[in-house]
Amino acid sequence: MDFFIEVLVGGMLAGVMYSMVAVGFVLIHKASRVFNFAQGAMVLFAALTFVGLVERGLPFAASLLTTLAVLVLLALLVERIVLRPLVNRPPIVLFMATLGLATVIEGLAQAVWGAQVHALDLGIADKPLDLGGVLISAFDLFAAATAGTLVAVFGWVFNRTRLGLRLRAVADDPLAALAVGVDLRRVMAAVWAAAGFVALVAGLLWGARLGVQFSLSLVVLKALPVLIIGGFSSMTGALVGGLLVGAGEKLAEVYIGPLVGGGIENWFPYVLALGFLFVRPEGLFGERSVARI
């Protein structure tokens, strides 16, 4: 039983790492119905920039603030240069734009900082803690707490503040939002800046876990099943989806894996997501679209 709990908890904590990336998607999708494929590239860019600055001798805090400023600037530029001119285009056009953008940002990040793998130390020891007989990684706990805080704060802003109300208004009907005096540009700038911040947090935690390297931008692929399961525009969904994916893949690996020769951890989340698409296509917490015919 202890072993089961250990696998379950370990999986859920790993899953929270996926949530962190998913939160960046949810932010943008909620406000503009854009699936921002470049979120992963932003994660890579953030981690590379931070490591690059630290390796050049900048103190930890200064590197963090500089990276944050760079990321927010990058996000604002993306919104201004790429997405704003494409406003009112079909979703697939916007998606293709972010797909191209991902490649550009990945290339840019490596052109500036090089393509070799860097180690990133956040000063949090990755050693197991013994909690009532269950071994849990301290780093995972820290990451989970960070992701939980992010989700709580963003969820609260969305649902309880005027900024959130405006955001939801813009997402729902931009023309109507404009007519009631919502400044679309300010709202979109706020959302993209926040997405830049999330990319930084995710980049640091993932970078510390995997090493800072190109494959960081592929964490988007792990965020995808999380989003399908949780719903594309729900903060809570991003968290719960992450927990389900994390727990699901680890349990499947441990208990089903041996029966089929192992290595199912990597594709199991997509099977789970596929199942959700059949049964509940809007995800657990997604907005069920009401269509009148």
Binding site: R168, D172, D173, L175, A176, A177, A179, E287, V290
Partner: peptide
């Protein structure tokens, strides 16, 4: 608006 522009959700 003639055809309604409400925040339906």
């Amino acid at each position: 608006f003639q055809n309604l522009a409400l925040f339906k959700g």
